[in-house]
Design a protein around this nucleic acid. Structure first.
Lengths: 222, 222
DNA sequence: CGCCTGGCGATTGTCGACAATCGCCGAGTT
DNA sequence: AACTCGGCGATTGTCGACAATCGCCAGGCG
């Protein structure tokens, strides 16, 4: 961070760029389970050679977003409600409880400032009805904390879990979260984080994920 | 499965082959945290071009076994006891509880036969003191059950977790499991599986993993 | 002596071409 | 009509060459 508040512009390989584009298309619902992904087609559309596309598809495959069949192409993968509820959400809870407890002693005033900005962005997104922008800020909020825990494996696994959970909720349970409550839920979480009380934080992240990532949450909240 | 009991010989791409070789080298302890992995060196040693090596390294990176640095090469990653205990083992438990409960109605007599053979192989490996063979049979036992659950995401995540747990125990807690008890522990688990009683099975896999994958397990057993 | 800058070695990232695989479908046989 | 087999289209897997990046280190300057 320079004195001017400028950040280094991250270099991004074509592979990473392609992976981001595809992951976003899947989590946004533009690509649906069963949609075929053909290397040469994607390469042509994206103006690149097949190699970065191959590598991006491999990455997404390891992240459970895509399935590949030898010599037959790839397809977008869905995930069942059963696996979300019984596997992915509990793993997410395990990851975030650990990350939050380890991040507690590491969050700077600048971090808290950024987290507050993300909550503000959620509020703006909710006001204008942009679910993509809301989801993006939501993800960046959680990711910032996991990153600050400095637990390498925790972050790596979190990154392989979060997108498929998000894709599921976007596609299969679109009404699960009332956009108007998402910013408040994160504000509450941030307020608890500021207290620095570990037990309260763990309790809060537990509740937050249970409320926020349960397919029946919308009805339960009423 | 043909009438002769022959299995189709699985085709394996070079990428998969390279990934297996590297993963085994890491979990067996031949490659250690910090060891550098250079594409062209590995390609030359393995008699292949760089492309399959690249793809294999990417796969291992997504499985938390390797870290890559742009234009600087890759290195083998370790994992801390903290992350094993607080993250990886709890995730493993979540995965296996789910997989075992889903596999219960699906295990055939042939499956049980194969599981018994794997336990027998553990006994033979323990007798001759081959920890690699013991670990291999152990992994195949658990994997067979997760595969038979037919829960795609569960298996995919399991495959990204198991090797790094195994590598940790091989490298950093080599004395954690008494080889003589491993076969018996799996026999007990298999016997409970045969009863088909879900609650007992879940309890057994819980205990099995807690006993088998706790760094202090060796002392606790005495 | 300390700091800065630029060159370069080491390595990866990408490209385009050729090799290899897989399943589908049509033709031939019974 | 049902079954079998082989060809081929679609696509991936691999190769080798060239392009691009990164950090280190040596040389120059103040």
């Amino acid at each position: 961070m320079t004195a001017l508040g400028l950040r280094r512009v991250p270099s991004q390989s074509r592979r990473e760029h392609v992976a981001d584009i595809l992951r976003d298309a899947i989590t946004d619902g533009q690509l649906k389970p069963g949609d075929r992904l053909i290397e040469i087609d994607l390469a042509n559309q994206l103006g690149t050679s097949r190699a970065p596309v191959r590598e991006a598809l491999r990455q997404l495959e390891e992240q459970g977003l895509v399935a590949s069949y030898p010599y037959r192409g790839s397809e977008v993968l869905g995930v069942s409600q059963d696996e979300v509820e019984q596997v992915l959400v509990p793993i997410r809870i395990t990851l975030e409880r650990f990350a939050y407890s380890r991040a507690l002693g590491r969050l700077s005033e600048d971090d808290f400032h950024q987290l507050q900005e993300l909550v503000d962005e959620m509020e703006a997104a909710a006001r204008e009805g942009s679910t993509e922008r809301l989801a993006d800020a939501d993800v960046r909020f959680h990711e910032l904390i996991v990153v600050r825990s400095e637990q390498r494996h925790c972050l790596q696994i979190w990154k392989t879990i979060e997108p498929r959970v998000r894709a599921y909720f976007r596609r299969d349970a679109p009404a699960h979260a009332d956009a108007r409550t998402v910013p408040a839920q994160h504000q509450e979480l941030l307020d608890v984080l500021r207290t620095g009380a570990e037990a309260a934080v763990l309790d809060a992240i537990d509740r937050h994920i249970h409320i926020h990532l349960s397919p029946g949450a919308a009805s339960d909240e009423r």
